[in-house]
Amino acid sequence: MRRSGFGLTDFTPAQTEKAFENSAVNVFVLDGNNIIGCGRALSDGVSQAAVYNIAVDEAYHHQGLGKKVTALILEETADCNAVLYTHPDTVSWYEEQGFRRMKTGLALYHPDRISEWALSNRLNPRICRRIGRVLGFCAIKTDSFPAMDILVSTALGQ
């Protein structure tokens, strides 16, 4: 993943790795040995899921990969209501995917996490490589994306 294509986090690689390890569902899209997309969800596996960190390298935009990552996460959490947190610039894209704005949603943010810099910071490619090595995955080849592997790791139902 190129640094210019992502605004996932300002956390260290170890913190990002921990966030993915502690998620119920992780999806990574690979082109060869490069992670070019990802997403994750927290979930109780019964009624609620929160979707985070959907991202696709800019060089791979407009190929349906973001839709595929989102669909795989929603498939793994199909019995749950799903909420999604995203950048204001991408709200309309998620609305096109079926998400609706909430009228009653509230949030309590950690004071150290609120800054414009945090919203616009870019993910280091080493983070994704470390995540791929640490987590266990099952690889899925799809007809829609024959040259790419899509990896799904889920803790649900275990």
Rank of each mutant, 00 (worst) to 15 (best):
108 L>D: 03
130 R>Q: 13
106 L>M: 14
91 V>H: 12
133 R>P: 01
126 R>L: 13
74 L>T: 07
59 A>V: 11
64 G>Q: 10
53 N>Y: 05
28 F>M: 12
100 R>H: 13
111 P>G: 06
25 V>T: 09
116 E>N: 03
81 N>F: 15
105 G>V: 05
87 H>E: 00
114 I>D: 11
51 V>R: 04
92 S>P: 00
81 N>Y: 15
48 Q>I: 05
34 N>M: 01
31 D>E: 14
109 Y>D: 06
91 V>I: 15
54 I>R: 01
60 Y>H: 15
73 I>R: 06
80 C>F: 14
37 G>R: 04
27 V>M: 00
111 P>T: 05
114 I>F: 06
56 V>G: 09
99 F>C: 04
60 Y>K: 13
67 K>C: 02
63 Q>P: 01
74 L>N: 10
69 V>P: 05
25 V>Y: 08
118 A>L: 00
100 R>W: 01
127 I>Q: 04
86 T>R: 07
103 K>M: 08
66 G>Q: 04
113 R>S: 15
42 L>N: 09
23 S>N: 10
118 A>Y: 02
88 P>D: 04
52 Y>H: 13
115 S>D: 09
121 N>I: 05
75 E>L: 03
30 L>C: 12
118 A>H: 11
102 M>L: 15
21 E>V: 01
50 A>R: 11
25 V>I: 14
72 L>W: 05
101 R>I: 04
33 N>Q: 06
69 V>K: 02
102 M>A: 14
102 M>T: 13
25 V>P: 06
77 T>F: 11
95 E>Q: 15
75 E>T: 06
111 P>N: 08
80 C>M: 12
115 S>Y: 07
51 V>Y: 04
84 L>C: 03
46 V>R: 12
39 G>L: 07
45 G>D: 09
93 W>T: 12
47 S>P: 01
84 L>Y: 08
35 I>A: 09
26 N>L: 07
59 A>Q: 11
39 G>W: 05
24 A>D: 07
30 L>S: 08
68 K>A: 12
127 I>Y: 03
65 L>T: 03
54 I>K: 02
40 R>I: 03
42 L>T: 15
78 A>W: 09
80 C>V: 05
133 R>N: 12
58 E>S: 12
77 T>K: 10
124 N>K: 13
40 R>E: 11
67 K>P: 01
65 L>W: 02
61 H>S: 05
60 Y>L: 08
32 G>E: 09
91 V>N: 11
